[in-house]
Amino acid sequence: MEKIQAIKPGPKPNKPDGKPDERRRVNPPNQPKHPDLKPHIHKPKD
């Protein structure tokens, strides 16, 4: 019987110099550069 394993997200990749890559999170000082998404408005019958 084969064992089924769930796919788990691995650790974030490291930069070439060995430091962790933190591009996937927004730090509080950079938050103004990343505005929230605008609300999506549906058209009638859409």
Score class of each variant (00 low, 15 high):
K33P: 01
K8T: 04
Q5Y: 07
K15S: 09
H34Y: 15
I4T: 11
G18M: 06
P32G: 03
D46Q: 08
K12H: 02
P13T: 02
Q31P: 02
K43I: 08
N14I: 01
A6F: 10
Q31T: 12
P44C: 07
K38Y: 03
P35A: 02
P29H: 02
E22R: 13
P9R: 01
R24G: 14
L37M: 07
P32K: 04
K45C: 00
N14C: 06
K12L: 02
P39C: 05
K15Y: 07
I7E: 09
P39Y: 09
D21N: 13
G18R: 06
D17R: 05
M1C: 13
H42W: 08
G18E: 00
I7D: 05
K3F: 10
D46A: 03
K15D: 09
P20A: 03
K38T: 03
D17H: 07
K43M: 15
M1Y: 15
M1F: 14
D17G: 04
G10R: 05
D46V: 01
D36R: 13
P9S: 10
I7K: 00
K43G: 12
L37H: 12
K15F: 08
H34R: 06
N14L: 11
E2K: 12
N14T: 05
D17E: 04
K43F: 09
K19S: 15
P39S: 10
E22F: 13
K3R: 14
P20G: 01
G18P: 00
G10Y: 04
N14G: 01
E2P: 12
E2D: 15
K3V: 11
K45Y: 07
I41Y: 07
I7H: 00
E22H: 10
N14S: 04
K8N: 06
P11Q: 06
P11V: 02
P32M: 04
K45P: 00
N30R: 13
P29G: 08
P28L: 10
P32R: 01
P35K: 06
P13K: 07
Q31N: 12
H40E: 01
P9D: 08
N27Q: 08
K12C: 02
P11M: 02
N14W: 02
P13L: 06
K43Q: 15
G18W: 02
R24E: 13
E2A: 14
I4C: 12
R24P: 00
P20Y: 00
G18D: 00
G18C: 09
E22N: 14
M1D: 13
I7Q: 01
Q31G: 11
P29C: 06
K43V: 14
P39T: 08
N30T: 13
Q5F: 05
K19D: 11
P44K: 08
I7T: 08
P9I: 01
N27M: 14
P32L: 07
K19Y: 14
V26Y: 08
G18V: 08
K3G: 09
K12N: 06
K15A: 10
K12T: 01
P16Y: 03
Q31A: 14
R25K: 14
E2H: 11
